[in-house]
Amino acid sequence: MIHVDRKACPLTDSALRTVGLTKRYGRLMAVDDLTLEVAAGEVFGFLGPNGAGKSTTIRMLLGLIRPTAGRASVVGVDAADVTRAHQVLAYVPGDVALWPHLTGAEILHLLARIGPGTDLAYQDELIERFVLDPSKPARTYSTGNRQKVALVAAFATRAPLLVLDEPTSGLDPLMEREFRTAVTQARDRGQTVFLSSHQLAEVQAICDRVGILRAGRLVEVASVARLRALQRAEVTVAFTGTPPALSAVPGVETVEAIGDGQLRFFLTGPPAPALSVLAEADVTALTVREPSLEEIFLDYYGAEAAR
């Protein structure tokens, strides 16, 4: 039995710690010298484009794959010691696969039996909140429903650490809201949440701190406020007559003319100044695009960071 009363063992105050964690597949460096510490009770976002090494890192944390170098521990337990380490964590995979002929209820029952301990009353509440029909066989479930089964099972545990790998990729917006509520409740209970994601908005909405992974390297550990500065929109306008004088407007960057009567620029921060300038021009069309995380990263950290 492992006691995870945080007050009782101040030495293991970090919920998750990696030191020089590295995984190499042949010549490919999937995760490169990752050193990271997540404090107990924190909601930590693990942000990176697809293929950055987020899942590989998580699989090392779970002891599914062995690090080439370095080590990882969860709540003070070596991650390779899975029988002890998995007493203190619950996991939701990015792409949830379930045993096809078992019903949702049977799978939840199995996970509760072999898991780190489940609050069955809270599990029932979660089933209702996530609108999951547990009586159907898993082979009939959609991606979102399979994800719900894994989320319900994980949130219903009292494990001090929840490891969630892109947990909302198959959920609709309504369920995403339930997910955020469940994360908040987990935090209120003192559980640590390690959330991997490639969506800036999701991480901004629920995390305290964010680690940014790019091409296997941790490029930054930042507060969410810092992250906001990363967010920018790509605006394209078409106009007739005089071009709007955007160059000197605060928040506007890299204005360029693309063809006849068209401008493109990037907008950071409050859009009001740019909008008032545009209002004066004779704008015939306007499109705003949120760049993908990959584009933001490439722009912000440059191609160098990829090396």
């Binding site: 599914l64 045993w99 072999i114």
Partner: peptide
């Protein structure tokens, strides 16, 4: 992928 969810439990 159905094994991952099982192996994340306290079971060697």
């Amino acid at each position: 992928g159905g094994m991952e969810l099982m192996l994340a439990n306290p079971l060697s």
